[in-house]
Design a protein around this nucleic acid. Structure first.
Lengths: 243, 243
DNA sequence: ACCTGAACACCGTTCAAGT
DNA sequence: ACCTGAACACCGTTCAAGT
């Protein structure tokens, strides 16, 4: 391998995988809205036009990044317990995987077709529900409901602990930036809580009464409670008769 | 009132209400993504800069449009039955109201603070849950869960019957445009169904087996089934002991 | 005081032209 | 065949300047 002259030294070859990985990394950093074709192209060291060789448009690229986000979700095994325990574990893993990539879950709610990794999880979801003795029609609708739950929970969790704002200008010094992040981290929950507490008690008595509970509790406990409610609902006596 | 000379004849006075109404109308027509400050400003016959007198940024404007979308939701009354029937009715009305405005529900999932109309619905949701004898902590988490359900169901319903694509160029003649709309109307459900049926049966046996059920059924029946599952889950025996 | 023209720093996507 | 410079038609937001 002689040193052949190149336009740029050691430039990584462009590939779909590299583009999608760069896209997901930018989503982590900046959030979906701020990820542009131009920024992605910069990250992989080309011009924006080059991306269109690999991807038809921005939506398709975001869909690929979304699918990549759940690529590492492991399916529960026999060692993880009965169908219900495994279902809860699978849902939890999917939510966690999505929530780890900022607001990538929004992509799943905007009408894109599911990618291979989403399909893998869907298949297992349906299989577990069926193992649980739930009727075929109920399985189909339950998978839909649980899918909605996964996406919206991931989004909620990501929002609750979002450390980044738009932050397009990185002019601040490190300590300043860190302080700003710290502040933004609790921003949403805190602002919501402040809003609830500031409401007139005559018009919003129940919100006021429950204000401490509405924004309280840690995410994991809430999530575990919610998925249990969902499955309890599927197993409710009335449901096994006729869905 | 003598005819005083004006810059433009009969120009409507600019107001926040007019701006928000125009924004929601554009969302109906084009979808959230395609609604820009510039287009809104055109619709109210000004320049983009003028909007910033009334609204701090695009996100705040979208949040106001989102709140407006549920402004007409009527709260159920005693005549509508017991707490559970009323809760189901309230949820159904909220989903229907949101789904009637294209993908406006996305705004509610992107970390904006709830507006007055959302709060009115939240208050009633919590009140009804409490009337049902559900513990305070469970009410708080249940309202959260039901809120997620409302937003994601509205989005799903809107997608299922979306008649508009980006359609930025309206060059086609009326009959052509109508045919295109007709085609797009079923596009998502049909494409999803086609995808499921094209999957290899060895790897996705359950999806393949349930394919006809996954995309079938009308929206209303599905929605009614889902909210019943949710409430059944809240009322499951285990739940009343300790939330 | 209220409004806005013009500008700044961006977008997604296309296509003719290059290698 | 694969890639891309340059252009087109847009963006959100700001601010100095007007009335």
């Amino acid at each position: 391998m002689p040193a052949r002259p190149r336009t740029r030294s050691a430039k990584t070859t462009l590939s779909l995988d590299a583009i999608v990985a760069a896209t997901l990394a930018l989503v982590d950093e900046l959030g979906c809205e701020a990820v542009s074709m131009r920024r992605v192209s910069q990250a992989v060291q080309t011009g924006p036009a080059s991306l269109y060789v690999y991807v038809p448009d921005r939506g398709a690229l975001m869909a690929l990044a979304h699918d990549l986000a759940v690529a590492d979700v492991r399916l529960p095994t026999d060692a993880d317990g009965d169908w219900r325990a495994r279902l809860e574990l699978l849902v939890d893993r999917a939510v966690t995987a999505l929530a780890a990539h900022n607001d990538i879950a929004t992509v799943g709610m905007t009408g894109t077709l599911p990618g291979p990794h989403i399909l893998r999880i869907t298949e297992e979801l349906l299989r577990l529900l069926r193992t649980g003795g739930i009727s075929d029609a109920a399985c189909a609708w339950a998978a839909d409901l649980i899918g909605q739950y996964i996406a919206s929970s991931a989004l909620e969790e990501a929002m609750w602990s979002r450390a980044r704002r738009s932050q397009e200008r990185v002019g601040g010094s490190p300590p300043e930036a860190a302080a700003e992040e710290e502040k933004a981290e609790e921003a949403f929950a805190a602002r919501l809580d402040a809003l609830y507490r500031s409401l007139p008690a005559e018009r919003y008595p129940t919100i006021r009464a429950l204000a401490p509970l509405l924004t309280g509790g840690d995410g994991a406990t809430r999530a575990a409670w919610k998925i249990r409610v969902l499955i309890d609902g599927l197993l409710a006596p009335a449901r096994s008769d006729a869905n």
